[in-house]
């Protein structure tokens, strides 16, 4: 484990009465830097809090915001639940998939984009909505998506899954 990771790990552990509580926050921290939860991160996490790598894997696999393989620089998660579906989510989804040339749970070949249809994002009053690298965008029409995409591609690189 790098000294930096160890230091961060210890900081997280200090917040809780039991070290294992720091497991997920630590994986989130590693994911922010690596783009996904690497094997090394899972090994480090296990060592840090005292559980086996197998257990870490089983725990990590429970959570949908922990990616077990490289996803993309731009993680696009479009809501598919009832309120959004009533207000145009289905059309938006088809449009984005066509535009990016990838389907649900797929990454683009160049590693730039990852696309996923997710459950209610608690923004149902401004449907349809989506998150790009965990940032909300509301009332997204196909035309609005085009200009968002342009923006994302010109802005400086940022972590796809920020930890805090």
């Amino acid at each position: 484990m790098t000294p930096e990771r160890l230091a961060r790990g210890q900081e997280l552990i200090a917040r809780y009465p039991q070290p294992q509580s720091a497991l997920i926050p630590f994986l989130q921290y590693c994911q922010e830097q690596d783009g996904y939860v690497t094997l090394q991160a899972m090994k480090d996490a296990g060592e840090l809090v005292g559980v086996t790598p197998g257990e870490v894997e089983s725990i990590a696999s429970f959570y949908t915001l922990l990616f077990k393989e490289p996803a993309g620089k731009h993680i696009i998660q479009v809501c598919r639940t009832l309120s959004c579906s009533l207000r145009g989510a289905d059309e938006l989804q088809s449009y984005i998939k066509r535009k990016l040339g990838i389907g649900h749970l797929e990454s683009s070949a160049d590693g730039r984009f990852y696309y996923e249809e997710v459950e209610c994002l608690a923004a149902c009053d401004r449907a349809p909505c989506l998150q790009h690298n965990l940032e909300f965008h509301y009332d997204v029409t196909p035309a609005a998506f085009d200009s968002l995409l342009e923006q994302w591609l010109t802005q400086p690189p940022q972590p796809a899954m920020p930890a805090e």
């Binding site: 039991q18 720091a22 997920i24 926050p25 994986l27 429970f62 959570y63 949908t64 922990l66």
Partner: peptide, 25 residues
């Protein structure tokens, strides 16, 4: 404590498991 994606962690005992660093069951 930030969640990591799982509706079931809204259920109170699953939430406790999740804060303890386990699967949110």
């Amino acid at each position: 404590h930030r969640g990591a994606g799982a509706y079931i962690c809204g259920e109170e005992t699953a939430q406790l498991e999740s804060i303890e660093g386990k699967r949110g069951e």
